[in-house]
Design a protein around this nucleic acid. Structure first.
Lengths: 148, 148
DNA sequence: CTTCGGAATAGGAATGGTTACTGATTGGAG
DNA sequence: CTCCAATCAGTAACCATTCCTATTCCGAAG
């Protein structure tokens, strides 16, 4: 049974490697953004991340958080999804997966157990475009908002 | 072999019916927005629609176009898709379908021949949320932008 | 045909998430 | 330690979209 420290180390190693390969530097602010994403429940917005980071480092700028998230996404450490009429949400799960957002309270959670490989394959087969990215955003009502 | 006028009539009939049922009024501005969508190649933005409508009615307001598009979507006549970092695109195909947007030139075209029913089914089966809407946005490079 | 009330519109201001800009700071290579 | 490029903080700007208000339009009822 691994300790949390152990798992965290492995993650650190992987991230360090991705930074090294990309040429970007793993600064304290970018580390803080990663920490905030790790602590967060659900899928925080840039503003959420900013507020979390600010608790420990009050001088950090919102723009820095946006830039950090953009770098982290570029090197494959962070995934982002955008639902219209609400801020972009970020998370650490970079594997293709589904997220659903509650139209009423804004909560985002993952939908497990849906195979997406075949869809991706069909898309590539049926378009002359060079496919870069497929994003699926699902909207609905979470169990508690459904009642109200 | 139907004439264009004939097909247009059928469309008009269907739309008139949807307006009637919804309680919204089919005003000249809303009709003009529909015309602009019919004429447009690809999937225009609200601004595109606004510019087209403005050619015949220079007094129309951008806000009116947005409101018209929103009403048309609500009654099931228009479909919209939003790619992050670019304005929302609209079209008249309200059946579930895939659209891909070129990351370089912004062109949007449809991807035919991909079955989406099973995905929708799997989504509903695997989440406790009440699913309202599933949107798939695909990004890539169109054939001509791929070269450059 | 006229009147009346609510819906829709024009015009423009406001919003809000995100990006761009600038000068100061930092951190790693030599 | 010094230098240079990358990064950062702070703030202004951007832009798609929404909101606001006075005016106009539409269609139902007389």
């Amino acid at each position: 049974m691994e300790t949390t420290v152990g798992m965290s180390s492995v993650l650190e190693q992987d991230i360090r490697e991705k930074f090294r390969r990309s040429g970007y530097t793993l600064t304290s602010q970018r580390r803080a953004v990663l920490e905030a994403l790790k602590e967060a429940r659900g899928h925080p917005s840039a503003e959420d991340v900013y507020l979390t980071v600010k608790r420990k480092n009050p001088r950090v700028a919102l723009g820095t958080v946006y830039q950090a998230l953009s770098v982290l996404e570029e090197i494959g450490v962070v995934d982002s999804k955008h639902w219209s009429e609400s801020p972009t949400r970020y998370d650490l799960n970079v594997e293709p997966h589904l997220d659903i957002r509650c139209a009423r309270c804004g909560a985002v959670s993952e939908i497990p157990g849906v195979e997406l490989g075949e869809l991706e394959e069909n898309i590539r087969y049926n378009t002359p475009y060079e496919v870069k990215r497929t994003t699926i955003v699902v909207e609905g009502l979470c169990p508690s908002c459904r009642e109200a």
